Amino acid sequence: MSGPLLSVDGLVKHFPIRGGVLQRRRGTVHAVNGVSFAVEAGQTLALVGESGCGKSTVGRTIMRFHAPTAGRVTFDGRDLGSLPTGALRAVRRDLQYVFQDPYASLPARMPVGEIVAEPLAIHGIGDRGRRRDRVRELFDLVGLPAEAITRYPHEFSGGQRQRVGIARALALEPKLLILDEPVSALDVSIQAQVVNLLARLQRELGVAYLFIAHDLAVVRHLAHRIAVMYLGHIVEYGDADTVFTHPAHPYTQALLSAVPVPDPRLRDPGRRRLLTGDVPNPADPPSGCPFRTRCWKAEDRCASQRPALEIRTPSGASSACHFAEEEAVVTP
C-alpha cells in the first residue's frame, strides 16, 4: 500500500439541535469543521485539545459510529464512506477502538475472557478452544494473569480494566487503534503504565495509533505527529518535536505552558500563557478565527478572516494563525 494508512480529508460533523413538541430544528452544533490529517502505518498521531473541542467526535465519525456531514475518510486505500455495512464490518477487523471509560466500556455481566473473545466470535475466527488460547495470549501481552479470564469487570481496577479493553481491541490483529483518551480516567501513576504498555505494543506489533488526548504531557513520548484541535478546527499540525519545542499557534503555546514542569530550575514564568474566558459555544461559534475570543494576539482581521492551516514556520509546521511564529518552549 502506498500513502498513509488513514487519511481524513475535510471531515465535517454537525449535530442538529431540536426542541418543542414537534422537535423542530432550532440550531446546529458545529462539532467538527473541515478536519484533515493522516496517520502513517506503525506510527502515532496525537489529536489533542481541551474537552469539548471535537476530538472524540472525529474518532467516532471515522469509525462510522456517527455518519459524517461532509468529508472523506480513507483507510488502507478504501473510502469508508462508500462502503456498505457488510464491507465496513470487514474493515473493522483492521480498525479498532479503545474507549475512554474503562468502567462503562465493558459489559458488567460477562467474564472478561468472553469480552475479549467476543470480536473473534463475531468474525467467526477459530473454535471455542482456539479462541480461549488466543485470549490467554492477549492477556499475557497486556500484562494480565491468564487465570483472570473467568473474573468479571467489577473485580478489576481501572488500569486493569483498560488493559482488558486494549486486549479486546487487539484480538483481531488490527492495523490501527483509535485510542479515545485511554488514560484520562486513570490515576497518574497508572497512566504512565498504560502509556508505556501502548508504546511497547506498537514496537512489537507495528500497530498505528490515533491517540486522542487533552493532556499534551501524556503523548509527549508516544506521538510521532501532533494535531492540535480547537472548537472543531485543527489549528496546528506538525511533527511532535517541532510542536513541543517550537509551537507556532497561540493556543498550542497556552496548552504547553499549562504542562507542569517538575524541576523549578526549568520553569520560566515569563513564558506562561494563561487563557482567559471560556470556550465559545459550538452552536454559535465566533466569526473568523475560532480562537480569537481568547487570544492575546487577536486583531480586527481575526474577526473577519479565518486563517487557513498552512505552513507558516521555518520548521515546516502548519498553523492556522495570521500571526503564527515559533516560540521556544523548555520541556522536561
Results as ranks from 00 to 15, higher is better:
G3A: 05
G10Y: 08
L11S: 12
I17E: 11
R18I: 13
G20K: 11
R25F: 00
R25P: 01
G27M: 12
G27H: 07
T28W: 13
T28G: 00
H30I: 03
V39P: 05
V39A: 07
E40D: 15
R60D: 03
I62Q: 02
I62R: 02
R64T: 11
H66S: 00
A67E: 15
T69L: 02
G71M: 08
R72E: 11
D76G: 11
R78G: 01
P84T: 04
P84V: 05
R89E: 11
V98Q: 03
F99W: 10
D101R: 02
A104W: 06
P107A: 12
M110I: 01
V112L: 01
V112R: 01
I122M: 10
H123A: 09
D127Y: 07
D127R: 08
R136W: 01
A146V: 15
E155H: 06
S157W: 13
G158K: 06
Q160Y: 02
R161G: 07
A167N: 03
E173D: 15
E173V: 01
E173Y: 00
E173N: 14
L177Y: 03
I190S: 02
A192C: 03
V194T: 07
L198S: 03
L198Y: 07
R200Y: 03
Q202L: 02
V207G: 06
L210E: 02
A217V: 06
V218R: 06
V219G: 06
L222I: 14
R225S: 14
I226C: 07
M229F: 10
L231I: 13
H233K: 15
D241P: 00
T242P: 04
V243I: 15
F244M: 04
F244H: 02
A248P: 11
H249G: 13
A258R: 02
D263W: 04
R267A: 12
G270H: 07
R272T: 12
T276Y: 09
G277K: 13
D284H: 14
G288H: 10
C289E: 08
R292Y: 13
E299R: 15
A303E: 14
A303H: 13
R306D: 13
P307Y: 13
P314M: 08
S319C: 14
C321G: 09
C321K: 10
C321D: 07
F323S: 09
E325I: 00
V330N: 01
